[in-house]
Design a protein around this nucleic acid. Structure first.
Lengths: 340, 340
DNA sequence: AAAACCCACGAAAACGTTTTCGTGTTAATA
DNA sequence: TATTAACACGAAAACGTTTTCGTGGGTTTT
C-alpha cells in the first residue's frame, strides 16, 4: 500500500504546525481563511484521508458491528445479514461477518476475536452445537467486559442481553392450525433435535394446536430429523405406513421440499393426499413444485431490528434494561396445502 | 464498554515502566524472570489484551479483508463468502462484508470506505449497474493508492488486477452441447441484458455450441429477461408459440425454475416436451420438481481462491504481475433434462 | 586494580489524529 | 497611552503499543 499523505506531511509542506493543518481541514475559523483554503486545496489535491487507526485509537470506537451466524448459505440468515447491513449503514456503521458453521469452538473464537477491539458490539445467532453443549461462557465474558451484544433468532433465555426472536411457538401453532383448518386430521411434524431451540418451540406450538383441536398427539408422527443420515429415507419411514399423516408441518423449507419429493415419489399428490407446510420463505419455497405454503420469518426485518437495538444501546444508555423484541411470522399460502 | 486494562495501568501497579511491562508480556529475557512472572500473572488475572487500534496504528495492518458483493441472498455469493471466510481465517485474516445491492453508487461508497484503512485488501464482484454504466473509476483509485484487490466472477477485463472467473463461455457451451447431445434441435436461451458480463459470455458459448452442431442460431429464441417486469410472462411468450424450443438453457437457476413452472403450467412435461438446464447449483436446483440439471459454479472454491490470491499478494510481492484464475464449471445432471 | 562485560530496566520515539491551552502580534477601545 | 480584545497560530498531551538505544550497577576477566 502506498504511504498515505498525513497531517505531518502537509504541515511540513506549508511550514506550519500539525494543529494548524488539522484545524484547517476541519474548517475551523481559528485559522485564517487564506491559509485554510490553501491547505484544503492541497489536501484535496493529494486526496488526504485521515488515518482510520489513528481516529479509532483516539475515539475508542470502530463504527463496526460484528455478526456471528451459523451458516450464511441459509436464505434466512442471508436475509438477516441484508437487514443488518442496511440498518447499520443508515446509522453510519459497517458490518463484519463471521461464520460459526454450527461449531461451538468456532463461535467462541469468533466472538472472542470480535470482542477484542474489532467491533463496538455484536449480533449473534447461536450455533447448534453451542445450544447442545449449553456452554455460554463466551457470552458471559462479553457481559463482564461490558461489550453490548444482541442475540437473534437462536437465543438462550438465561443470557442477560437484548434479543430479537421469532415467535416460534405461535408460528408452529399457526402453521399447524392452518393444516387442521383446511381439513387435516393427522398432522405429522418434521423437526430438529430438541436442543435446537427454535425447533423445540415450534414443536410446542404444534402440540398446542393439535390439542386445542381435540386431536390426539401421536409421538410417532413427530420425526426428529438426523441431519447426518439420509433425510429422505427418514421422512419416507413416516409416509410409508398405513396410517401415514394427511398433512406435514416441516420446521424448515428444506425438510418441506424433501417431504414433497418423497410424497410425490410414492405416487401421491401434494396437497391432496398429503399437504405440506414449511417454515422460512426462501427461494426453495417459491420455486418448488408445487410452491410451498410457509410461515414467513421476515429475516430482513429481524436483521434491521437487531442492528438498531444494538446501535441504540451503543449510542444512548449502555445500561438501559434489556429488552426482547418479537418479530411475528405470517402465513404465506401457496400450492402445497389445501384451500380453506 | 468497560475501560480495558492497559500497559500503563500495569506499569503503575508495579511501579515500573511501560517498556518493562511490554517486554515482560512478550516474555523477553531482557527482564528478570521474577518480574516477568509477576507481571504475566497480573496481566493474566486482569485478562489483559493489547488494544487492537494501537497495534494497527503501529503496524499499519488490519488483518481484515473487505468483500463487496452485489447480493448476499444469491446462493452462489453466499457460497463464495463461505470460501473467502474459510481461506481468510486459515491465514489469520477476518472478513468484512459489504453489499452493493447491484447499485453503482453503493458499490463506490463501499469500496471507498473499505479502502480508507478499514482493510488490507478487497475482493469485489461488480454490480450490474456498474457494468452497465461502465464506470470503473473507483477501481482506478484503488490502483492509484496501491491497495491490492481481486475481482471475482463479475469482472471487467480492462481493470489491471488479479481476477478469479468462471469459464462462462465454456460453461454456456457445455450446457448447450449437453442439451443438443440429448436430442434437442431447437435450444432456447434465457439470459440477462448484454451488459451483464457473465450472461453475455454464457450466450457466446451457447451460440458456439449451436453453430458447431450445424443448427441455426435463431435470435427469437434468445430472451434477454427484463428483471423489472413479470419474468414468467416473458418466458411464456417464448413457449407460447408453435415453434417453441424443445430445450432451454437458463443463465441462472431462478430463470430455470420459473421456466419449468411455466412449461408445466401449460400442461407440458419437463424434460420430455421441453428440457431445461440451469446455471449455479443452489438449493432451488436441488429441490425443484423435477430437480434441475445445472452447471455447478463452485462458488466456495472460487471464494477460497480469491482470498488466497489476495493474501498472497499482501504477504509476498505486492508488485508481482497480475494473474487470472479460471475456475471451471461442471455439469450436474438431474431430472430436468433427458438422458444421453 | 583497571578494563570489559552482563544484567535489568527506563527513556523516548514512532504510528496519526484531535483538542485544549497557551502566546505573540495587531487592532480597537477607554 | 495604556488596556483589552481579537486574531492566527503553535506546543503538547492523549489514545496504547512496540522497539531501539541508553545507562547505572554489579560481576567477571586480565
Amino acid at each position: 500500500m502506498k504511504p498515505k499523505i498525513t497531517l505531518k506531511a502537509i504541515a511540513k509542506e506549508f511550514g506550519v504546525s500539525i494543529s494548524t493543518v488539522s484545524k484547517s481541514l476541519k474548517n475551523s475559523n481559528e485559522i485564517s481563511l487564506e491559509m485554510r483554503e490553501r491547505i484544503q486545496a492541497f489536501a484535496n489535491y493529494y486526496n488526504y484521508r485521515p488515518n482510520s487507526f489513528a481516529i479509532k485509537l483516539r475515539n475508542q470506537k470502530t463504527l463496526v458491528l460484528g455478526v456471528v451466524i451459523p451458516e450464511i448459505t441459509h436464505h434466512f440468515f442471508s436475509k438477516v445479514i441484508s437487514g443488518v447491513e442496511q440498518a447499520a449503514n443508515q446509522r453510519g456503521y459497517n458490518v463484519m461477518v463471521c461464520l460459526s458453521n454450527e461449531s461451538h469452538q468456532k463461535e467462541m473464537m469468533n466472538v472472542a476475536m470480535l470482542a477484542n477491539g474489532s467491533v463496538d458490539g455484536l449480533l449473534v445467532s447461536i450455533a447448534n452445537e453451542t445450544q447442545n453443549k449449553r456452554d455460554f461462557k463466551h457470552f458471559q465474558e462479553l457481559i463482564d467486559e461490558e461489550i453490548p451484544f444482541v442475540l437473534f433468532d437462536r437465543v438462550e433465555d438465561t443470557i442477560a442481553c437484548d434479543k430479537v426472536v421469532i415467535d416460534d411457538v405461535k408460528g408452529g401453532y399457526n402453521a399447524t392450525k392452518y393444516l387442521i383448518d383446511t381439513g387435516a386430521k393427522r398432522v405429522g411434524m418434521l423437526t430438529t433435535p430438541d436442543y435446537v431451540d427454535v425447533g423445540y418451540k415450534r414443536k410446542v406450538g404444534y402440540e398446542k394446536a393439535i390439542e386445542e383441536a381435540g386431536l390426539p398427539v401421536d409421538e410417532s408422527l413427530i420425526l426428529k430429523v438426523n441431519k447426518e443420515k439420509d433425510i429422505a429415507e427418514q421422512i419416507n419411514s413416516m409416509i410409508d405406513r398405513e396410517d401415514h399423516p394427511d398433512a406435514i408441518f416441516a420446521v424448515n423449507e428444506i425438510y418441506a421440499a424433501i417431504a414433497i419429493k418423497t410424497v410425490q415419489s410414492r405416487g401421491m399428490n401434494v396437497p391432496n393426499d398429503i399437504a405440506v407446510i414449511g417454515f422460512t420463505d426462501g427461494l426453495v419455497s417459491q420455486y418448488a413444485s408445487p410452491s410451498i405454503t410457509t410461515m414467513e420469518q421476515h429475516g430482513f426485518t429481524m436483521g434491521m431490528q437487531a442492528a438498531n437495538m444494538l446501535v441504540d444501546r451503543l449510542e444512548s444508555d449502555v445500561h438501559a434494561p434489556y429488552t426482547t423484541k418479537v418479530v411475528s411470522t405470517s402465513l404465506k399460502v401457496r400450492a402445497s396445502t389445501k384451500k380453506e
